[in-house]
């Protein structure tokens, strides 16, 4: 286990973490501000990836594909908010879970109906493909470095949006007391639509960026959605900063756990047993992390203190 391998794995963990952050940021805003559990967030991720695959196929431009992914997810997000979600703010969480679960089924089967059961093609453009050599002789794929950069850039942008702009003030106020800001003359339903569309656009961006190195197919969003929920629970619901720290923690734990736990077990087990139990333990690692964080801080790392 060389130092180069360890650094490479840390980069992999960071890259996984920032992509989770793009998903978790939208989820945590929607949950924090509107009090809504949106299971259909994974569908928006899928819609982003499909839109990117279609536009990349038509135009051959990866940049246009990314823009189309964000636009498509934002538009679908805004429509869903206005048509379905708006009726659910007053309902209890179980109704919201049922309705957004139904949305998952509708989006998944609708996408299959439109695009078929076979995965779509979406690849990294030539100018971003291949490895680059980092200081210290580490060879690392350029595209993954760019993913880390994009993720951190979006995180910084969201941080400024929340802390420095007027809409950020409204979002923070909405988290604290939505009746009061409505009484102060803020158009709360417009604010909700904007937040929902913003969260959806980030999910669509993540779907398109990740779709280029993974596979674009129906149902791709749900596994990510589960991890994104783990992230916002660890980070504290409603906190963008918490989502970022939580996403990086989950990304690093998952990646490094998958590598080091089997190696660790090999010290006192035979190789194949260590491999099997190590990978089983590694897939539990993030949930153990969540448990530990919740025991230590029941509202998450940056959640509001009860």
């Amino acid at each position: 286990m060389s130092i180069i391998l360890i650094i490479e794995q840390v980069l992999n963990g960071l890259q996984f973490g920032v992509m989770l952050f793009l998903m978790a940021a939208g989820l945590t805003l929607i949950f924090g501000v509107m009090g809504l559990i949106n299971l259909a967030h994974g569908s928006l991720y899928m819609i982003g990836a499909f839109a990117a695959a279609v536009i990349a196929g038509l135009t051959g431009s990866f940049i246009l594909a990314i823009i189309a992914a964000m636009a498509a997810a934002a538009i679908v997000g805004a429509l869903v908010e206005m048509v379905v979600i708006r009726k659910l703010y007053g309902s209890d969480h179980l109704d919201q879970v049922l309705a957004t679960f139904a949305l998952i089924l509708i989006f998944s089967e609708g996408t299959r109906w439109a695009f078929g059961s076979f995965p779509l093609f979406l690849d990294i453009p030539n100018y971003l493909s291949g490895p680059v050599t980092l200081p210290g002789g580490i060879k690392y794929p350029l595209y993954r470095l760019i993913l880390i950069g994009v993720g951190l850039f979006v995180a910084a942008g969201l941080g400024i949006l929340i802390s420095k702009t007027r809409i950020g003030i409204q979002i923070r106020a909405g988290e604290n007391d939505r009746e009061m800001i409505a009484a102060l003359g803020v158009d709360i339903s417009k604010l909700y639509t904007i937040i929902f569309a913003l969260g959806a656009a980030l999910a669509g961006l993540a779907g398109a960026l990740v779709g280029a190195i993974q596979s674009v197919q129906v149902g791709m969003g749900e596994p990510v959605l589960i991890l994104a929920f783990v992230v916002i629970v660890i980070g504290g619901i409603g906190s963008i900063k918490g989502a970022l720290i939580g996403a990086l923690l989950v990304g690093l734990t998952d990646t490094l756990g998958g590598i080091f736990l089997p190696e660790l077990l090999k010290l006192f087990m035979d190789t194949s047993t260590a491999q099997t139990s190590g990978s089983a333990l590694a897939s539990m690692a993030i949930y153990i992390l969540m448990g530990v964080v919740l025991i230590w801080r029941p509202t998450g790392l940056f959640g509001a203190r009860a």
């Binding site: 391998l5 490479e8 794995q9 992999n12 890259q15 996984f16 794929p141 993954r144 990740v210 190195i213 993974q214 596979s215 791709m220 596994p223 990646t255 998958g258 590598i259 089997p262 190789t271 194949s272 491999q275 099997t276 990978s279 590694a282 897939s283």
Partner: peptide, 17 residues
């Protein structure tokens, strides 16, 4: 010899190994 998670989509860690 590596056993990955079923349904795993990111293999950066395995490829590094």
């Amino acid at each position: 010899e590596i056993l990955t998670k079923l349904g795993q989509k990111d293999y950066a860690a395995e490829i590094a190994q």
